[in-house]
Design a protein around this nucleic acid. Structure first.
Lengths: 130, 130
DNA sequence: GGTTGCGTTGACGTCGGCGGCAAGGTTTAG
DNA sequence: CTAAACCTTGCCGCCGACGTCAACGCAACC
């Protein structure tokens, strides 16, 4: 399979596949004319990469998952390094959820306060009877 | 007040203040020698900017709040444009919280699955008695 | 043999909020 | 007089996952 077909089947671009390769995540062979040739298993790899990117992983975080797949496992998740990353990411997400919750509260309060202020201004401007 | 003093009092850098100015958020006068001169009210403005940046606003989002302060209001929140931004941001944060919750669940499930897989592998390798 | 559609490498652009440096001018303190 | 501490403008660097050319080679079809 060449780069165009893999890109289509993985739902991405050739640029992206070359980018992953440059970062050591995908490993094609080369045909006589220099074209990249991917074997079937790489589709799985690319899908794993895309899936993890989609939930906020960086390419560096993803490397252990790819290695895990390449080691012959059914899932990229089951190797110790992958599990370590999953744990770390879960902690990060929990942290971020906390902070985002704080932000939400602050936004909510600011909004409530702003609306009350506007109502009071409105009353002062137009008299207590509205 | 010149740029260095404002930077110190606002807890930021001169580079940052020039950046805000380039983006139309802060408006110093100029003294005869070309130095930026800020009046006292700008400290309030810069603090508003920093506060909103800290909770994830972009400079474009912040512009209405600055205008609101400059219009003489005690708070940058009370003007219609600011309220609109607050509403929009609250909605964005809610969306993001939802998606992050989904991500959290997926991470949690993946982690649980990975650990179960590892235990099973362990049992198969070392026999049912551990 | 010309066109079309693959492939290759290389390099620059994107977004946003700055950091940091260069190369100067100004002011103040000693 | 000089050094230090301010200030000015301008421009490149950063991060990360690519998009988007440019300029070329290879393959296949009519």
């Amino acid at each position: 399979m060449r780069i165009g077909e893999l890109a289509r089947r993985a739902g991405t671009s050739t640029r992206t596949l070359r980018y992953y390769e440059a970062h050591g995540l995908v490993r094609p062979h080369r045909s006589a004319n220099g074209y990249r040739v991917y074997d079937e298993a790489e589709l799985r790899v690319v899908r794993e990469i895309r899936s993890l990117l989609a939930i906020g992983f960086g390419l560096d975080d993803i490397r252990p998952f790819v290695a895990c797949l390449r080691a012959g496992n059914d899932s990229g998740d089951v190797c110790p390094d992958s599990v370590a990353v999953l744990r770390r990411k879960l902690a990060e997400v929990d942290d971020y959820l906390d902070r985002l919750g704080d932000v939400r509260r602050r936004l909510h309060d600011q909004l409530a306060h702003a609306i009350i202020q506007r109502e009071e201004t409105c009353l002062r401007t137009r008299g207590p009877d509205g």
